[in-house]
């Protein structure tokens, strides 16, 4: 039984058509013509409880708009959405009780007050019992390293500190579903790792369902078993990361360092680059296993070092988008 169901979701934004020329501004004000932008165009998926799903797409693909429909912020133009049996936009307050939302670009904290005040306020808004609040606060403070800036006003926090504060505030009421919209945008490596570890822990230990939108494919490789790839408001791919790579990037590369530079010719492998005795061979693991290939290379050449390079997700995804726009 899926916890999140989205079916043929469509969201259109309508705004008055700009009228150019003389008195354009006034005529724009009076016009009855509208420009319609279809930001989400028939998106559908089911997400089971306990999944950790990466929702990916280039800028303007419709990621945030989808998340805003799932969280109840926006009303879909058509299609259906249901989270834990609640239609989010129709019953926002009930929906809010079992979801947590973090927008990387916008803080949900009280800007001028110390972080600890925001956490206490969040507890009040969600009716978290004092004993639970103490327990969760202690745990989050520990996991996210909040203690050094709990009493600092939010506006003086660094981006990484603020994000950690936002995550804690969003999770105090132990929601079943956590939506993270670009949670690691602009963060340094340390802060990013901390947030990834926290999210992974929530998902593993508490079974929290997580939907993560991001540009950072490292986030996805580190965290997600399943990804949903969208562009121009439509789903391009929905499945696990390994299958995506196998389908769109079937080749792997064997990099060999030769003791004596020279040409390398091996059956079932195509040399794609060679510099100073460092040769890159591309091969299809479905046709030849890496062990066989390495055996063949070693039989013919003296090799000082070798390594196998997996295709990285970034290149796979870039390839898919390039194919689609071509």
């Amino acid at each position: 039984m899926p916890i999140i169901r989205a079916d043929s979701l469509v969201k259109e934004f309508r705004r008055p058509k700009r009228v150019p020329g003389r008195f354009g501004a006034v005529r724009t004000l009076l016009t009855r013509q509208y420009t319609v932008t279809r930001a989400v165009d028939g998106v559908g998926f089911d997400i089971d409880a306990g999944e950790l799903v990466g929702y990916l797409g280039p800028n303007g693909a419709g990621k945030s708009t989808t998340i805003k429909m799932l969280t109840g912020i926006l009303v879909p133009t058509s299609g259906a959405v249901e989270v834990s049996g609640v239609v989010p936009w129709r019953d926002r307050e009930r929906n809010a009780r079992h979801i947590g939302v973090v927008f990387g670009q916008r803080s949900g904290l009280w800007w001028d007050l110390p972080l600890i005040d925001s956490l206490h306020l969040a507890a009040t808004l969600y009716d978290v019992r004092p004993a639970d609040l103490r327990a969760h606060l202690a745990r989050f403070t520990d996991l996210l390293g909040l203690d050094e800036f709990l009493t600092t006003p939010v506006r003086q926090l660094s981006l990484g500190q603020r994000m950690r504060g936002d995550l804690a505030a969003a999770m105090l009421h132990r929601p079943d579903v956590l939506y993270l919209d670009e949670p690691t945008i602009g963060l340094d490596v340390v802060a990013r790792d901390r947030i990834r570890a926290f999210v992974a822990d929530l998902n593993r230990a508490a079974g929290t369902t997580v939907v993560l939108t991001t540009h950072d494919l490292d986030d996805v490789e580190a965290l997600c078993r399943r990804i949903i790839l969208i562009d121009h408001g439509r789903v391009l791919y929905d499945g696990d990361v390994a299958t995506l790579k196998a389908r769109h990037a079937p080749h792997r590369e064997l990099v060999v360092h030769l003791a004596e530079p020279g040409p390398v010719e091996i059956a079932d492998a195509e040399p794609v680059a060679a510099t100073d005795g460092r040769v890159t061979l591309r091969f299809d693991p479905a046709r030849v296993s890496s062990a066989d290939l390495i055996g063949r290379v070693l039989a013919r050449h003296r090799v000082t070092d070798l390594s196998i390079v997996e295709p990285d997700l970034e290149r796979v995804v870039a390839g898919i988008y390039a194919d689609r726009t071509a």
């Binding site: 805003k68 969280t71 109840g72 912020i73 926002r92 307050e93 009930r94 929906n95 809010a96 009780r97 979801i99 939302v101 927008f103 916008r106 949900g108 808004l125 969600y126 009716d127």
Partner: peptide, 8 residues
């Protein structure tokens, strides 16, 4: 955005 995702 955040007013609509809180139970108040």
């Amino acid at each position: 955005d955040r007013y609509l995702t809180r139970p108040v």
